[in-house]
Amino acid sequence: MELVIDRLSKQYGSKIAVDRISAKLGKGVYGLLGANGAGKTTLMRMICGILKPTSGSVSFDGIDSEEEDFRAILGYLPQDFGYYPDFNAYDFLFYLSSLKAIPKKEAKAKINELLEVVGLREVAKKKIKTYSGGMKQRLGIAQALLNDPKLLILDEPTAGLDPKERVRFRNLIEKLGKDCIVLLSTHIVSDIEHISDEVLIMKDGSFIFQGKWNDKESSLEDFYLSQFEEGEDSE
């Protein structure tokens, strides 16, 4: 199981949003850190195959990101996603199950299981427009897990979750990371501090750090900030 990102770039006019990023990710949890505008969302969208790169490629076990088979193993939670106001949680997840080509019977069982996991079982028949921000986010997490993805891309997944929900989420990701590749971007360092196998720090479209960090030497937050300072010093 390997995600290969090969010299991926995205350019908008004269602005380079993602600058020749390469990486090989195996099973585990990868935390993607970076300031606003670093290019994290652009990178994640290209990995998911929903944004055409200017150059470079992404493949999972040899399957290119533009192919249907790639999307079959993908679970994606965008940073800012919408919903159909008149759908309830069941409708939304059934609809997405059909998009993910999950047979009906299997979908029903999976949806019930996921609604239990994200704590939305009791409000599943209510319309999404009545949900709080945290409930919508949990629904988003549920839809990303519908097809038991081998590659899970989560863009700021804990936004809107309260501390208790964040802990639950972290435990879930840690468990998932044992069987699939999880790439998780966040501003909340504590989300990935103890669960990420590797940290990817992004700045101005490039990785300025990629690897494991030693939690005995310093906290991840200090480590993260120090990378930026080092970057500034070298400039």
């Binding site: 969208r45 965008p78 919408g82």
Partner: peptide, 19 residues
């Protein structure tokens, strides 16, 4: 696009041709 459901749909297996 306006409801911001496009990324999730496009990232799904049946999100293009069948949709």
């Amino acid at each position: 696009r306006q409801l911001k459901t496009e990324p999730i749909i496009l990232a799904s297996k049946k999100g293009k041709k069948e949709t």
